[in-house]
Design a protein around this nucleic acid. Structure first.
Lengths: 215, 215
DNA sequence: TAGATTGTTAATCGATTAACAATC
DNA sequence: TAGATTGTTAATCGATTAACAATC
């Protein structure tokens, strides 16, 4: 008995990157080698082959991978052969930007609901959808079966929103609020923190530890 | 001779998280143990101690860490005792959201410029700053000394923008465009791809490989 | 056949974790 | 002193990479 998926975490997190490179490829290109895909994705050819080997053996020795087939296999592995319903909670600057962002729809995600606690926003139309009050979430969720909740609220209320989502049966959360979320471990959380990214860059710009000066 | 910083990559990427937890702490709280910090940051106490040991020995056996001192040491290590100047290229939905996002300023980052290629946007005022044309970037950069460039353009032009930034002397890039950037390895790139995050969640929702069904 | 490239093995490297002596 | 908690060691685990036999 092995774990529900034999694919290592690190590989899963790289598959979308390969997919993105394959989709950007000229449609005329029939095959691609691990070396070429490595170059496109800023990766190492051995790593590419090892990652792809987890999908099955879709490469042809001496030739490479069928680009179209590989694209499909990655999508299948990532569960992107179906469409997932996404809701956004918190229609501030970032939430609005995501609601209007075209990059989701053509990548397998459909934004089916926008929620906010601010009554002055409720009822407003945004990219064809009406903003609903957060209190409507529970009944909506029961009817619609939401796959992913995106949290773009202020940090102070992020935990409450996460708890509400979990109570509504949502098992995947993408959290943009700079707050740690405490959820059952049946729930998957991906955290994106914009300030964190800048802080990591800051570390490398400042050149590491002061001790390194006496090198 | 060791590398310019002895701190492992994985630790650097966790320091902002500890920092965020410490800043959310009650100001009355004088000390914090590795166990408590681990709970707050959804981490393991041994990992916390190991990470913090890279900063020096600021803990006290039997007592814990001085919360305020620890906060300062992490900020110092991350290079956050100074302020970094940030520019945003591409004032679309996401770029505008970031320009108006308060979370940067009080975390050590100052947005000093907004650029776009669209002449209808150039000259517009946004959160007190005037959007300038991308062609002005080169001379502005020479005068101002920009630390970090944030790319929020369409994917198609992201590489050109990155190249321009590098030519302007920018050595740290935060890229939101779903495109792989090819830059010299003196330049640090952090990539944030919103669709990628959803795709990773999709993988775990769909339960891994089909082969797993016959378990 | 000769050249190219995969799939996989085995070595290496780095990160995580448990355990515990040191010490407040 | 007794209890608590760090800092660090050593074991473990997982990820990366080079190398090459298999094979198109």
């Amino acid at each position: 008995m092995k774990s529900s998926s034999g694919i290592p975490k690190a590989t899963v997190e790289r598959l979308p990157r390969y997919l993105r490179c394959l989709e950007a490829l000229s449609p005329l290109r029939a095959t691609i080698s691990s070396t070429d895909l490595a170059k496109l994705s800023n990766m190492n050819a051995a790593k590419v082959r090892k990652d792809l080997s987890h999908l099955g053996t879709y490469g042809v020795r001496g030739v490479g991978y069928d680009a179209e087939l590989l694209r499909f296999q990655i999508k299948r592995e990532l569960g992107l052969t179906r469409e997932w319903d996404v809701i956004i909670i918190g229609v501030g600057n970032l939430g609005s930007a995501l609601a209007n962002y075209g990059g989701f729809v053509n990548r397998g995600f459909s934004i089916v609901g926008l929620y906010d606690a601010d009554m002055t926003k409720v009822g407003m139309r945004m990219d064809g959808r009406i903003i609903r009050h957060i209190s409507a979430l529970e009944s909506d969720a029961g009817r619609d079966g939401i796959s992913i909740g995106v949290i773009t609220t202020p940090a102070e209320v992020a935990q409450d929103v996460a708890t509400l989502l979990v109570d509504c049966g949502v098992r995947s959360i993408l959290n943009f609020a700079p707050a740690e979320l405490d959820v059952p471990d049946t729930v998957h959380v991906r955290q994106v923190d914009l300030a964190t990214e800048l802080q990591i860059l800051s570390f490398y710009m400042s050149g590491g530890t002061p001790e390194a000066i006496d090198a």
